[in-house]
Structure formats: structure tokens, C-alpha cells
Computed example of a mutant assay.
Amino acid sequence: MNRRRPRRSASAEELLTTLQKLTARARHEVQVHQARVELAEALQRETLPGSLPALPGLQTAARYSPARSGLNIGGDWYDGFRLPDGTLAFAIGDVQGHDVEAAAFMGQIRIAMRAIAATTADPGQIMARTNDLLLSIGSTLLATCTFVRLDPRARELRTARAGHVSAIWAAVDGRSGIAQDEGGLPLGIQAKQEYPVTRHRLTAPGAFVLVTDGVVEGRSLPIDEGLEAVMRLVTAHVSAAAERLADEVMRMAERTGHEDDAAVLVLRHSGFPGGAG
């Protein structure tokens, strides 16, 4: 009769060697993980603008907050720059995914929009051409985005939206709302898309606030309730400086229990000298 030989128990020395190997592997993985986090943070920091354009009658402010854990950094971004015709451009977006790849893709979108905006001031065309350019380079990521062109002479905003969270606005005369702009698909899904342009007249001093979904959606708050909460907050603080208003809106992200990163862009307008009506 064949008897199975008893399995030899590992010695203390063998167990210790195995534990050392597992510890070394875990330490290496932690180091690699940390290196990727630091690289994503560096890309995020260098890609976001150091300052935003402003002019008499306009205050601007922005905030960015990374997610609370792991590699959830690198997806949200904002930008602001002057256009050749004297108007101002602002944008905010959210890239699918996180980590180094998302941070790099965010940089590509920002560079593409700036380059295209130098040749056309129409927000819908800027969005459409950016979408086609991103698809032409074979990117597998997608992004939501809102692009805003502010014309101080006409006292108006023209916006185009690619699957992004709605903007919030409030005026000092008590009016407020969630912008119901018609939009198109997120960037990077399908070529030859059209992005309708919505016109917002700045008839009274107030604020126009752009956010990413990390501000208004989280474990403790669905997005519709989050947008309503931010609208009430902006209405209550509409007379405050842009910096303070941006801080107040970003605190909303902490209350939602957000697991995504979050960005806020505030345009606080109080009347433009020489404007047309």
C-alpha cells in the first residue's frame, strides 16, 4: 500500500526568508505607487495655470482639490487666457480616469484648446476642433469640458459644453439658476461632433461658477442635490470677492464626501467700463 509522505513543515528560517521576500516586494510596489502619485501631482501642478486673466469689472478665482485616496489625481483641470480679439477664454474639464495618463491627457486638451482658440473665437468650433484633434492622435481617454468666451464690451458670455456638469449663476438682484445649456458628447468619443453655443447676457453684477462633478456629487449627495446646494451657496455669497466665493464652493466638495478630485472656477463680474448696455 502506497502511503503519502507527510508534508515537511517549513522551518523558521524558511518562513523568515519568505516573509523577507514578500516584504521587499510590497515595499517596491509601494515605492512604485508613490512615484506614480508624485509624478501625477507634478504634472497636475505644472499643467494648471499659475494665474487667471482679469480686467476692470471682473474678478477670477479657481481652486483644485485632489481626491482623498490612492492615485485619484490628475483628471480635473481649469484654464483661463486672453484671446487675440481682446475677449477672455475660460475652460474647465474632467478627464476619464486618473493617474499619470489622465494628467498628461489633461495637458493635451489644454494645449489644443489654446492653439485652436488663437484661430477662432467661437466656443463651439473650439470644442469641435479639439475633439477631432484628440481623436486624430489615437487617445483612448475621454473628457467632459465647458468652454467660455467672455466679451466685456458686449457684456456677455458664450459657452459650449461637452458632456460637462452644468454651470451655476447668480446675480446681486436675487436671481439665480443652473444653466441649462444644450451640449454635445464628451471629447474623445466620436469625430465631427457639433457643440451648440449658448449666450448669457450679464445684465446685472453677479457670478458665473463652473465646477467639476467632484464638487457636487459624492457618497452623501447626488449630483442634482449638489447643484442645488451650490446654487444656494453662490446666491448667498454672490457679493463676496471671487477668492472667497471659490473657497466657499470648494468647501461644498468636502461636505459631499467626494471620492473624485474637484475643481472650481469663479467669474465674478461687477460691470465692465465701456460695455454695450
Rank of each mutant, 00 (worst) to 15 (best):
L210D: 03
E217P: 05
H258G: 10
R149A: 01
G177R: 07
L265F: 06
E225M: 02
E225I: 01
E182K: 06
E259F: 13
Q190R: 14
G184D: 15
E228T: 10
V234W: 06
D181S: 06
D151G: 03
R158C: 07
Q193N: 13
D247Q: 11
R161K: 13
H200Q: 05
V266D: 07
D181T: 03
E194A: 12
T212K: 02
S166H: 08
A162E: 11
R158G: 01
M250H: 02
A207P: 09
M250V: 11
V165G: 01
Q193P: 13
A191Q: 14
D260C: 10
R161N: 15
R244N: 10
E217G: 04
V249P: 14
G163I: 08
A253P: 05
E228Q: 12
E182N: 08
A179Q: 01
T146Y: 03
R149T: 08
Y195G: 09
V165R: 00
G206E: 03
D213W: 00
V230R: 02
V230H: 01
D260W: 03
E259S: 09
A253H: 01
E182M: 10
W169K: 04
I178Y: 10
P152S: 09
A160K: 05
V234T: 08
A263N: 06
A240I: 10
A191P: 15
A241T: 14
R158S: 09
A204N: 06
L233Y: 06
E156K: 08
R219P: 00
Q180F: 07
T203E: 15
D261V: 09
A179P: 00
S166Q: 10
V216Q: 10
W169I: 04
A236K: 08
G257H: 11
H164A: 09
A171H: 14
G174N: 10
A179Y: 00
G271A: 10
T212W: 05
D247L: 11
E156S: 14
G163T: 07
R219I: 02
G174T: 13
A241G: 15
R149N: 06
R201S: 15
A236W: 05
E217S: 12
G226R: 10
L187I: 15
R268E: 06
A162D: 07
K192H: 15
I178R: 09
A179G: 00
A167Y: 03
I168K: 02
H164C: 03
T203M: 05
R161Y: 04
L157D: 05
V211Q: 03
A167N: 07
G174K: 12
H269D: 13
V238K: 05
P205Q: 01
D181L: 02
P205E: 02
V264I: 05
A242G: 12
R251Y: 02
R161H: 02
A171Y: 08
A240E: 15
L227C: 02
G184H: 06
R219Q: 07
T159V: 15
Q180N: 09
A241C: 11
A179E: 09
R149E: 02
E228D: 14
V266L: 07
E259Y: 12
E254Q: 12
P196V: 06
V165H: 01
R149F: 10
I178K: 13
L150I: 04
D181W: 07
A207K: 05
G183P: 04
A242L: 08
I223A: 03
